[in-house]
Amino acid sequence: MFTRETPTDPAVHTGTVRADDEIDARERAASLFPGVAARWLCPADAIDRDSSTPLEAGEPA
């Protein structure tokens, strides 16, 4: 989920909603972020994660 707080703000990633279907996802996003200028929802499996910083354990601090 990406939200834009005001019409001039950039869209920022504001989390993930888990829902049964697209309509449910939209409703859940709307109930959590009711006052924003825009909400963008994208199915998780449509996102390609290509990170250059994998989660790896090093020496503990």
Partner: peptide, 25 residues
Amino acid sequence: WDRYALGSVRDRPFGAIWTDESNPL
């Protein structure tokens, strides 16, 4: 909050997710 996650520790460290000031919720 099982149906809403702020982010994943695979993408960002826990502290960065927890202190993110750009999330209005």
